[in-house]
Amino acid sequence: MKYFLILLFIIAVFIISMIFGSSNNQIITFNFLIAKGDYPISTLLAILFTIGFILGCLICGIFYIKTLIVLSHAKRKIKRLENKLAELG
């Protein structure tokens, strides 16, 4: 439920940014590292928001997977120690 609410919030922010961006159709020049392009603000806002969202999800996913791996190793070690304790007792 928590993740659904977070996703709903992200979608709402994206929709609000699209509404604000669509009301302003001014063309701006965006300088890339190696290129330059002229884009409407709404398009540039949507592209950059989407790229940021995807990068954020990838970074959080990497840390989540790392945490799951550490947790599984810890559970395995606890199980091994419990078995040793049961053998001794």
Rank of each mutant, 00 (worst) to 15 (best):
F4A: 05
L5R: 04
L5V: 01
I6A: 15
L8V: 15
F9N: 03
I10G: 10
I11D: 00
I11V: 08
F14Q: 06
I15Q: 06
I16K: 14
I16C: 14
I16D: 09
M18K: 11
S23N: 10
Q26V: 08
Q26T: 11
I27T: 12
I27Y: 12
I28F: 09
N31Q: 06
F32A: 13
F32N: 10
L33F: 15
A35N: 06
G37Y: 08
P40R: 12
P40K: 14
S42F: 13
T43A: 11
T43D: 05
T43C: 08
L44C: 02
A46R: 07
L48G: 11
L48E: 08
G52A: 02
L55R: 07
G56Y: 13
G56W: 13
C57W: 13
G61H: 10
I62P: 13
F63C: 07
F63M: 08
F63L: 11
L68I: 14
S72F: 09
H73M: 12
H73S: 11
K75I: 08
K75A: 03
R76A: 06
K77H: 12
K77C: 09
I78G: 01
K79M: 06
K79D: 06
E82Q: 09
E82F: 11
L85Q: 02
A86E: 10
A86D: 07
E87R: 13
